[in-house]
């Protein structure tokens, strides 16, 4: 099942709508978001994904991470707080 998410890549100027599969890993969603923002932000090799103030496990799936339709996720550089 597809889960639409609002994604924000650190350094970008706007929020992007990303359609993630519920069995897709957080790392994959982050990569999808970085590709969507690549015309404005150079992709980072190491990132973290935040939702509701918590860091998500990159190996966990979208559904296991508790993300539901139109949640907000943030992709930030790995070293950022």
């Amino acid at each position: 099942m597809l889960v639409p998410l609002y994604g924000f890549v650190a350094g970008d100027t706007l929020g992007i709508l990303v359609l993630a599969r519920d069995d897709e890993t957080i790392a994959s969603v982050a990569a999808q978001l970085q590709r969507a923002a690549t015309v404005r932000v150079r992709p980072r090799a190491r990132v973290r994904v935040l939702a509701r103030g918590a860091v998500l496990d990159p190996a966990a799936t979208v559904s296991a991470s508790g993300l539901t339709a139109l949640d907000r996720i943030d992709v930030v550089a790995a070293e950022e707080p």
Binding site: L14, I16, L17, A37, V39
Partner: peptide
């Protein structure tokens, strides 16, 4: 299109 987004935005 190389400097254009292709994903819908919020």
């Amino acid at each position: 299109w190389y400097t254009h987004g292709t994903t819908p935005v919020g």
